[in-house]
Design a protein around this nucleic acid. Structure first.
Lengths: 179, 179
DNA sequence: ATCCCCATGTAATTTGTTACATGATTGA
DNA sequence: TCAATCATGTAACAAATTACATGGGGAT
């Protein structure tokens, strides 16, 4: 499932502009999929070209025309097909964890700020997901939001309870490696 | 932190070949960073070119010469610099969760196999991480392994306890959307 | 005053994936 | 005999990120 397909899917929930979709990528979908304008606008252009969505331009004053996209029947069918895929991926890419692997080479101070930053990010995420209450959302989205929340809480708890493990009783490993 | 840098970092743990690094990307590092030969070999070639690592070719019979890479002092320094980065990323990309958002459009059967596949993958991961016991690993790696384990267990538990939420009491949403 | 929100898009670059290419040894 | 492990690499392709480009309106 690439961004094109996911945009198509989002439009099954109702019409939206590229800007609207971006916001959704920052809120309810942000914790497991990210996309910027550079991906979304071309995706929508492609979907319109291939008649999977229609586009209505709404004139605006002082800003570019708002383009509202609506899924077509062909788009619906196409998306249903995409949903039949088995073994969808589920990958993490964490520079944070990568860096922590080398905690023994880092200064304690830096390590602390790294962990604190991550905890802050987790708190923001937790707050965000909690604010995406169950109101009127598809049950799948509710499930996924709960999933993100559960995982984020577990991650937070783990970091808080185990960060002491990262600080070695002997902080001489750093100098040893540097020399 | 890109693959180049991470390969360089892995070499701080000792000399290794591209093949060795790939194995590490499949085991202890696999749950948060992935890389194939197509990324690793070019990365090592680049590191050697820029004198951040040295390469010793060990003749083999019946297979290509084994190329063993060793980090240089310049490499060490370069890696330390890379470790000073703040705000490293931590992103998930889950087609699995993306699909689940549209559970109301899926057949129950398909939904079940999707969830079962994910649970199996989680079990494999859990087993793998458990087998990466604390023996002789840097404390950072131990922490990161524990992190992966904790998160995987939380994910598993959540799916098991909440999968019933995905199956609507009314399965008519599908037909409604299709029509 | 200044910053954020609205609103669109393109182009260059970076990055990584996949397929291709080769082939002996070892264990089931 | 069949699959897996060891062992390297290139080239074509796909995908997404980043920077660029523009600009009014409203809130603090």
């Amino acid at each position: 499932m690439d961004i094109k397909t996911l945009c198509l899917g989002m439009l099954t929930f109702g019409e939206a502009s590229g800007y609207d979709l971006k916001k959704r990528f920052e809120t309810s979908f942000g914790h497991f999929f990210s996309a910027g304008y550079g991906s979304i606008y071309p995706a929508l252009a492609y979907l319109a070209e291939t008649k999977l969505v229609t586009c209505t331009e709404i004139p605006q004053e002082g800003k570019p025309d708002r383009k509202v996209y609506r899924i077509t029947e062909a788009g619906q069918r196409k998306f249903m097909d995409a949903l039949c895929e088995t073994n969808p991926g589920h990958k993490m890419r964490s520079e944070f964890l990568a860096m922590l692997c080398f905690a023994h080479l880092m200064e304690e101070q830096h390590l602390d700020s790294l962990l604190d930053n991550r905890l802050e990010a987790l708190d923001s995420l937790i707050e965000l997901l909690r604010s995406c209450g169950p109101e009127a959302q598809a049950r799948g989205v509710q499930f996924v939001t709960g999933f993100g929340l559960t995982v984020a809480l577990a991650a937070k708890k783990y970091i808080e309870e185990n960060r002491s493990l990262l600080v070695g009783s002997e902080s001489t490993q750093r100098e040893a490696a540097a020399g």
